[in-house]
Write a protein that binds this DNA or RNA. Structure first.
Lengths: 343, 343
DNA sequence: TTGTAAGCGTTATCAG
DNA sequence: CTGATAACGCTTACAA
C-alpha cells in the first residue's frame, strides 16, 4: 500500500503537510503544494478511504434499506427502481455513496445498529411496513437521533421523517373519474394493510363513495399483495361480480395487480372499458404497454427518492424543510390522474 | 460512542479479551465469555465497522459500477435491475455489502482508484462499453491484480473476467426462427457497436443469412441506442421498407427498441405478425404485456449477476471457476428463444 | 507556513 | 486462557 508517508518523504515535507495539500486546508506555500501534488501523482498515491472514514468518524455512505421479499427480484419492480434512481442521483450530487442494505428475513431489523456500527451516516427506508417490529426499530432510530427518512410510507401516531405521495387525493381522483364515467358499482382492489397507502386509499374510496351516495359494501372490497399474480387470481370472484352486474369498475392499488386482473378477466372474456372500467396506480411502464392501455395514478417515485436523499444529505434542503410547520416530518408529493383506454 | 474500552471495564477484562469473545477467536473461559457478552449487550455495544475495516484493511464492500446515462432512470431498465438483484442476492449470502458507484460523465473512470482507496474489495461492472478509456481503466485493474468482473460485456483481445450471455447462439435462434417462418427479408435493428453483444449479434445475423443463401444488404441494417424511443424513431425508414416489400421481418437487439418500433409501426397501420414479423431480445416484462406479445430471446440476467458476484466473493465458486480451461476469464450463459405472437 | 504528536477503535502479535 | 502493546493511515489541534 502506498501511504501518505511515502509522498511526504518524496516531497521532502511532513505527513501533515501532505494531508493539508490534499484536503485544501490551511495556508500552503504554492511551491510546497506543487511538490506534494507532483510526488503524489508520481507514485500514484490515493488516500485510503478506510483510514479517512475512521479518522473522520464518518462513512460517507447513505444506507438504502430494502425489504426482504422472497422470490421477488426487487429492483425489477418499477416502484423500487424509480425511487432508487432518485436517491442515487441526489446522493451522487451530495458526495455520498449508496450502501444497499438487505433486510434479512431471519434476523431482526436493527437499524440503530447500522448507525452504531458507523456503517452509514444516514439511512433511507424503502418498502417499510407497519408492523410492531418495524415501529420499534424506527422509534429507536428516532430516539437516538439518527438521520433517516422513509419513502412512500408513514406511521400513524409517530412523527417519523418521511416522503410520501398524496395517495388520498390520488385515489379520490380515480374514484371520481369512474363515477363521472357513469360507473356506480366500483370494486376496490387494495394492497396489504401494513402499508400506509392502503389505509389512505381505503379512506379515499370510502369517502368518495359515500359522498356520491353509495354505500360501501364488503363484497366490493378485495385485497392483494401488489403482485401481478395476486391480481390475476382475483379475476375469479371479481369476474363473477362483473358478470352478475354487481361490479362495473375496479380501482386497483397498483398497476401490477391491475394488469394481472385485466389479464385474468380477459381470459374470462371480460374486456376492460367494454365490460368494466379499470384504474390502476403507479403509472408504470407496463400501464402504457398493456392493451387496452391502463388508466392510472402517476406517482412521482423518482422525485420522492430524490427528495428523501436531499433532505438527509443536502444542507440547503435540510434547512428548507426544517422551516416548515412544526411537528410533521411527513412530506406528501402530489400525484396526477392519467386517463387512458381502460376506463 | 460506546467503545470496546467500556465493555472491557464493565466486564473487568482487557480490551483484547473483549475482541476475542466477539470475534470467536482463541480459547476463552466460558465464564469470561458470558461476562463480556453480558456487559456488551447491557450497554448496547456495537463494534465500529469503520475501525474494523481500517484494522482489517478490508471494506467488506463489493462495488457495483453503473454507467452514467443522462436522463435514464437506470434501475428502471429491466437489464440493470435484474443483474443488480442477482448480485445483491449473492453478496448478501457472502457477507458483503453492495456499494453503488455511479460513473460520473465528467471525470475519467478510475476503477483502480476505488481499490487503492480501499473503498471496495471487489468490483462488478455493469453496462461497460468498449471505448479506449474503458479498456485502459480495465487493463489497469487487471495489471494491478484487483478482483473484478464484467457483466454482459466482453473485450476482444483482452482476457478480462466476465460473465456474458451467449448472444451469438441466441441471435441465431431468432434469425432461424424467422427464416423457418418463411421470412426472407429480415432487417436487423442493432445496438451501438461499443457493446460486445452488438458485435456478437451482427456476426450471428450475417452468418445465418449467408448460410440461408441471402445476401446481407446494408439497407436492412439499422442501429438504435437500446431506448424505446430509438426504436420508435426508426419506424419511419423501416415502415417504408415493409410497405415497399423490402422488409418482411425485424430482429431487434432488445425488447425496448422492439416495442418502440412496434408502436411506431402500429401508428403507420403496420401490425406485427400480420405485416411483418418481429423478434426482440431480453424477455423483459414488457414483452409479455405488449400486444401482440413479443417473441424474444430470454437472457438470464439475474443469474449472470449472481454468478459474477459469486465468482468474486465465494471461495468455492472461485476455485470451481479457476479449474476451468486456462486463459479465458469469459463465461457465457445460455439463452433461450421465446416464441410469442409477434412472429 | 510547516512540523510534531495525540488520537480514532479495532486487529493481531507476543509474552506470560 | 488473558493482558500489553504495536500497528493501521489519516485528521487535527497545538507548537514553532
Amino acid at each position: 500500500m502506498i501511504s501518505r508517508k511515502e509522498v511526504a518523504r518524496l516531497a521532502g515535507v511532513s505527513e501533515a503537510t501532505v494531508s493539508r495539500v490534499l484536503n485544501n486546508v490551511g495556508p500552503i506555500k504554492e511551491e510546497t503544494r506543487r511538490r506534494v501534488l507532483e510526488a503524489a501523482s508520481q507514485i500514484g498515491y490515493v488516500p485510503s478511504a478506510l483510514a479517512q472514514q475512521f479518522a473522520r468518524r464518518r462513512s460517507g455512505n447513505v444506507g438504502v434499506v430494502l425489504p426482504f421479499m422472497p422470490k421477488v427480484k426487487l429492483f425489477s419492480t418499477y416502484y423500487f427502481s424509480e425511487i432508487l434512481s432518485g436517491i442515487g442521483e441526489a446522493a451522487q450530487r451530495c458526495g455520498y455513496d449508496l450502501l444497499l442494505i438487505f433486510n434479512s428475513p431471519d434476523q431482526r431489523h436493527d437499524y440503530a445498529k447500522l448507525f452504531r456500527a458507523q456503517k452509514v451516516d444516514a439511512c433511507i427506508m424503502l418498502g417499510s411496513s407497519d408492523v410492531p417490529e418495524e415501529r420499534r426499530a424506527l422509534k429507536e432510530l428516532q430516539m437516538e437521533g439518527h438521520p433517516f427518512c422513509l419513502v412512500n410510507q408513514h406511521f400513524g401516531g409517530e412523527d417519523f421523517p418521511a416522503v410520501d405521495a398524496d395517495h388520498v387525493s390520488g385515489s379520490r381522483l380515480a374514484i371520481r373519474h369512474l363515477l363521472e364515467g357513469g360507473r356506480q358499482r366500483i370494486a376496490f382492489l387494495n394492497g396489504p394493510p401494513q402499508y400506509s397507502n392502503s389505509g389512505d386509499r381505503l379512506r379515499a374510496y370510502r369517502e368518495e363513495m359515500r359522498e356520491a351516495g353509495y354505500s360501501v359494501r364488503q363484497e366490493l372490497m378485495f385485497v392483494g399483495n401488489y403482485s401481478r399474480t395476486s391480481g390475476y387470481e382475483l379475476a375469479g370472484p371479481i369476474g363473477e361480480g362483473i358478470a352478475e352486474g354487481r361490479i362495473d369498475a375496479v380501482f386497483a392499488a397498483n398497476d401490477r395487480m391491475a394488469i394481472g386482473l385485466m389479464q385474468g378477466l380477459a381470459e374470462r372474456g371480460l374486456k376492460a372499458r367494454e365490460h368494466y372500467a379499470l384504474v390502476g396506480c403507479d403509472d408504470s411502464d407496463g400501464s402504457r404497454l398493456i392493451s387496452p392501455t391502463l388508466s392510472t395514478i402517476s406517482v412521482p417515485f423518482y422525485e420522492m427518492g430524490k427528495l428523501a436523499a436531499e433532505r438527509l444529505l443536502s444542507p440547503e434542503k435540510k434547512e428548507e424543510i426544517g422551516n416548515r410547520a412544526e411537528g410533521n416530518g411527513l412530506i406528501r408529493l402530489p400525484v396526477a390522474f392519467e386517463a387512458r383506454e381502460s376506463s
